[in-house]
């Protein structure tokens, strides 16, 4: 069997590392449970371009086989490996160790949810919230005719990878524990694309107002800052929903229309047409 390019490349990388003493990095990782846990310091050999998840998995393989961490794709596509590095929510697979040069590295689980063990929190609440949102429903039969300009603003909310870091950082959930009354930024993002999809016929504004508690958000934009896929959650999801709720519930004409039609005062298409002056 001939040697393949990978092993050749590996040999090359090793040769570079052999030039000097092996560099290491120290990580302080939360170990334990909600009731009984503390940070433990680990030291691990540093590799070129290493991300924090690499370091955690190396510790798991070589030092602590029961160290709990969630991960899947390792490419920032799946949103599984969310945790907190130095108090800020981060995808572990996307956080390079070298970004923290000169600093201590503290790795903790998401704190807005109950901690199961080590770096793993119980995020199941999010799936309950998701289940409570009216799904996409259309009277029309696919294939739909929709133009790029009809849908281009939906691409952004649809990029969400459900890492739940926006949920983790949101004061309404993290500090005030309003999980019963507030759906959190992730689910305003979902409600937004559903509400703005030109073919959807459901009315979710009452839910957004009453059940999901959009009024509780005081637009501090913390969620937008941590979004790993760059969704402008506050500006493009939450504020438009707040505006729609205000329009729908505090505009007398729309209020009347709603009473008569018993559903959305206008379909998304009618709303678009009205906006464009047609």
């Amino acid at each position: 069997m001939t040697e393949n390019g990978n092993s050749a490349a590996r040999a090359g990388a090793a040769a570079v590392a052999d030039d000097g003493p092996k560099k290491t990095v120290k990580l302080n990782i939360f170990r334990g449970t909600e009731e009984d846990g503390k940070e433990v310091e680990y030291e691990v050999e540093l590799a070129e371009g290493m991300v924090v998840l690499d370091a955690v998995l190396k510790i798991q393989a070589e030092q602590e086989d029961d160290l709990a961490v969630r991960w899947n794709c390792k490419a920032a596509h799946c949103g599984s490996c969310s945790a907190e590095i130095n108090g800020k929510p981060k995808l572990l697979c996307k956080s390079r160790v070298e970004e923290y040069e000169g600093q201590e590295i503290h790795v903790q689980p998401l704190h807005a949810f109950p901690i199961i063990k080590d770096l793993v929190s119980d995020v199941s609440w999010n799936y309950e919230v998701s289940k409570g949102i009216k799904p996409f429903t259309s009277d029309e039969q696919a294939p739909f005719t929709m133009y790029e300009e009809d849908v281009e603003r939906l691409y952004e909310p649809k990029k969400c990878i459900e890492c739940f870091m926006c949920q983790d950082v949101c004061h309404v959930l993290r500090t005030h524990n309003k999980h019963e009354e507030f759906a959190g930024p992730r689910f305003f993002v979902r409600n937004q694309w559903l509400e703005m999809h030109p073919m959807d016929n459901q009315d979710r504004l009452e839910d957004v107002k009453e059940k999901d508690g959009v009024g509780l958000c005081n637009i501090t934009k913390c969620c937008t800052e941590v979004c790993p896929v760059g969704i402008k959650i506050t500006d493009n999801s939450i504020i438009p929903l707040k505006e729609r709720v205000a329009d729908e519930y505090y505009d007398p004409a729309k209020w009347l229309m709603r009473k008569i039609r018993g559903r959305k005062s206008m379909t998304n298409r009618e709303a678009e047409a009205a906006k464009n002056g047609n």
Partner: peptide, 19 residues
């Protein structure tokens, strides 16, 4: 593919408004 669209999936569009 059409069924996915019926269930809310969003694909890039052609100038004619198709998938």
């Amino acid at each position: 593919a059409y069924e996915l669209e019926q269930w809310g999936a969003l694909f890039n569009r052609t100038p004619e408004g198709k998938i």
